[in-house]
Amino acid sequence: MANNSIQAAISKDKIKIVFQSIIGWALAIMFGLMSLVGLTQIEEGIDVAVLIFCLALTIYGVSLIKKAKKRKNLIRLFKTYSARLASDPTKSIDLLATSTGVTVDVAKKNITEMINRGYFTNAYIDLNRNCLVFAGETQPVQQANTMKTPNNQPQQEYITVTCGGCGATNKVIKGTVGECEYCGTQISGK
């Protein structure tokens, strides 16, 4: 299921966040202190190679901390983006950027990163329409609560349902069970 793959991708990143944070802070603190001590004793003949090694590990620790923070922010952004995209039938990146207060380029970059990390499964960015498209999606859902079907068939009533898996808002035919278009969790249109 798509929900399982999204949850697996997010869980994998959360584990990486913990390890990167722990290792990053340990390196930054331990070798940062050693670097400070080394800098104060440089006149006493401390080995410059050891000092450079300590500084390099301090910088590496800080970079791990920054990477962990970036992953954490991406997970937070995914929750925001998926909820906003779920309420927009066109999945417009322009509207998403406006509603989140970032530029269109930043929104595209974030969405691309989310797709690459497996947060949005079976999705791609349609550069012609500047929107996010999910596999099997032929056209955006109409805004109206009631949609006409071809050949004068009875109208189907759609209701808005919040996904229990990712929190996104979806439109489902009333009285049916569907799938969240973002994470694949089954949702009921009761």
Rank of each mutant, 00 (worst) to 15 (best):
L96E: 07
L96H: 08
L96R: 05
A97S: 04
T98G: 02
S99L: 10
T100A: 03
T100G: 02
G101T: 08
V102P: 04
V102A: 03
V102Q: 10
T103E: 09
T103G: 15
V104G: 01
V104H: 06
D105L: 01
V106F: 02
V106G: 00
V106Q: 15
N110K: 11
I111G: 00
E113P: 02
E113L: 08
E113D: 12
E113Y: 02
M114I: 05
M114Y: 02
M114A: 15
I115F: 06
N116T: 10
N116E: 14
N116F: 03
R117G: 06
R117Y: 08
R117F: 03
G118M: 13
G118Q: 08
Y119C: 06
Y119M: 05
F120S: 09
T121F: 05
T121N: 14
T121P: 01
N122Y: 11
A123F: 01
A123K: 00
Y124H: 12
Y124K: 09
I125V: 10
D126L: 07
D126I: 09
D126N: 15
L127D: 12
L127N: 09
L127I: 10
L127T: 14
L127Q: 13
L127Y: 08
N128Y: 08
R129E: 14
R129I: 03
C131S: 14
V133F: 00
F134L: 15
F134N: 06
F134E: 13
G136A: 07
G136D: 12
E137A: 11
E137Y: 01
T138S: 04
Q139Y: 12
P140L: 14
V141N: 10
Q142L: 06
Q142H: 07
Q143F: 04
Q143V: 09
A144E: 12
N145W: 03
N145I: 00
T146W: 07
T146R: 12
M147V: 12
K148R: 14
T149S: 02
T149W: 01
T149C: 00
P150T: 01
P150R: 08
N151S: 07
N152V: 00
Q153C: 02
P154W: 00
P154M: 06
P154F: 03
P154G: 00
P154Y: 03
Q155K: 14
E157S: 03
E157H: 07
E157I: 10
Y158G: 06
Y158A: 06
I159M: 03
T160L: 09
T160W: 12
V161P: 03
G164A: 15
G164F: 07
C166G: 04
C166V: 06
G167C: 05
A168D: 01
T169Y: 14
T169P: 08
T169K: 15
N170L: 10
K171E: 10
V172I: 14
I173K: 10
I173F: 02
I173L: 10
K174P: 05
K174F: 11
K174Q: 14
G175N: 13
G175M: 09
T176W: 00
T176K: 10
V177H: 04
G178W: 08
E179P: 00
E179N: 14
E181R: 15
Y182W: 10
Y182N: 13
Y182A: 04
C183E: 11
C183M: 12
C183F: 05
T185F: 11
Q186D: 13
Q186A: 12
Q186S: 15
I187W: 09
S188L: 04
S188N: 12
